[in-house]
Nucleic acid binder design. Structure first.
Lengths: 266, 266
DNA sequence: TACATTCGTCTCTTGTAAGAGACAATTGCT
DNA sequence: AGCAATTGTCTCTTACAAGAGACGAATGTA
């Protein structure tokens, strides 16, 4: 990692739970942290660097990495002293997708939608309490508004976040949102009460539009995908320029809601 | 698992290496076996059943599964007492794909090829010493010759297997092939020497065709993808009806080799 | 209604894996 | 060349996770 952040400061998605300055860390936990770390860096990394980034002892890290490489979960990349995800993770991931109707069909719908509208389209889900872009299709504007699959963003920054939390009671929502999550990239602060109001509103209207939250140039349109009546399993969303006309926005929202509803049947 | 097979009898891809009736098994190894087992079953499975299938103590299995579910690597499926792969594995898998030019471009080539020819097309690689279908595109014949991604097949049964081992010396090849691998599904036995001859032949011709090996109705055409001069990183292959004419077979092989060569540049 | 399984959780013990640290071999820098 | 940092491997200790087993609750099936 370029900057000095250690994993303790990173969102690990429920991996580290609580650690009262433990003396010894379980191997499996170390492994989970390794995977999470690689996911954050998005590129191959040296083992020493990895150990440093995780605040893990070098000897342990070497051992675990070797085991994971042998198992095929990690692979030695390029020059031979860097590691990254391995083929096996890809295979497991594909198996997950195959076994998951919603994801499989959702990916298709997103691709179709982005082809039809020309806008960036995404499928989003909650992943251990965090908003996650599960699949995205870039659209065809000259300046692409794109974001990588697997990216995790604080829930209050997004339209989808408001829908994904619909149906949860206040205490649960509070538990999922940290103070930092309420501060937008540009420094503005969202009030928790406003956010919870938004959620309630989104719940009844059945869609959500936010403007200029993650950045000043985009609008985010989202519609819920239900796995059971009332249970929001995912959202489909469109990311469009902020100056998109009311009329077109309306059309897009209608289309989006129709497609999301189609996914919900399951 | 429906039948009585325990994991010990399953191909685990280098996970279990050697186990001299150990009394206690490392947690990480148990986890690797769990993942491998789920990959073999291809569907959600109860925790008790899982423990049984792995010959693992129930208490340990419960603990590990809970940790993996918390981490998002596994998910509780459907009724709530079955587990399968989780979203996080999907995300890691996508990250792997993004970071892997060959795989990304290979998938596209395979899809294109199968669209152009109408035949089933596959991208194959060695995965911890086993032949693995990394991506496949079904073709459009009325009777589809299709095989699932992630499927692992003994190397001697396939044309790709002969290419993937090109360049390895005899001792290495022997180490990779077990006695069972040399017995075809219909009971016929391949001689190791014949197999090694085939490999040498495939190496010089730059492609390989096998007929009626895995089943009596198909021919398998394969061409190598090189990651460096002489190093076969993957193969592209076409699965066609066994009665495909010589002429068409020739055309297809030519096309296949061209596409595989295109992938090799990297 | 009894009887047999399977489920999920808990407690306690002991074999062993996580970690500290030392090492030579590389690598990079001046 | 000389010094500093990093790499990969090894050994030894002890804190702690893997596993045995018991438990009540929840199933299924006679």
């Amino acid at each position: 990692m370029q900057d000095g952040k250690t994993l303790a400061e990173w969102p690990t998605g429920g991996v580290d739970e609580e650690r009262p300055a433990k003396s010894r860390e379980k191997g499996l936990n170390r492994v989970l942290h390794i995977l999470e770390f690689l996911h954050a860096t998005q590129r191959a990394i040296g083992i020493g660097e990895l150990a440093k980034g995780l605040n893990a002892p070098r000897s342990t890290t070497y051992t675990l990495v070797r085991e994971l490489v042998d198992a095929g979960l990690l692979e030695m990349a390029g020059d031979g002293n860097r590691v990254y995800f391995g083929k096996k993770l890809y295979l497991y991931g594909m198996a997950y997708m195959r076994g998951n109707d919603l994801l499989r069909r959702g990916r298709q719908e997103v691709d179709t939608l982005s082809r039809e509208t020309g806008e960036t389209s995404e499928l989003c889900m909650l992943q251990s309490g965090r908003y996650t872009i599960v699949h995205s299709s870039p659209g065809m504007r000259p300046f692409r508004i794109s974001s990588a699959t697997g990216l995790q963003i604080p829930l209050p920054w997004t339209a989808s976040g408001r829908l994904l939390l619909a149906g949860l009671d206040r205490s649960r929502i509070e538990a999922m949102i940290s103070e930092d999550d309420l501060v937008l990239p540009d420094g503005r602060k969202i009030e928790l009460d406003d956010f919870i109001d938004d959620i309630a509103k989104a719940r009844v209207t059945g869609y959500c539009v936010t403007s200029g939250l993650v950045d000043a140039y985009t609008k985010c349109l989202a519609a819920p995908v239900f796995s059971a009546p009332g249970k929001v399993e995912a959202t489909m969303c469109l990311v469009v320029p902020i100056d998109t006309s009311e009329a077109r926005t309306g059309e897009l929202v209608a289309l989006l809601r129709e497609r999301a509803a189609r996914l919900s049947i399951s």
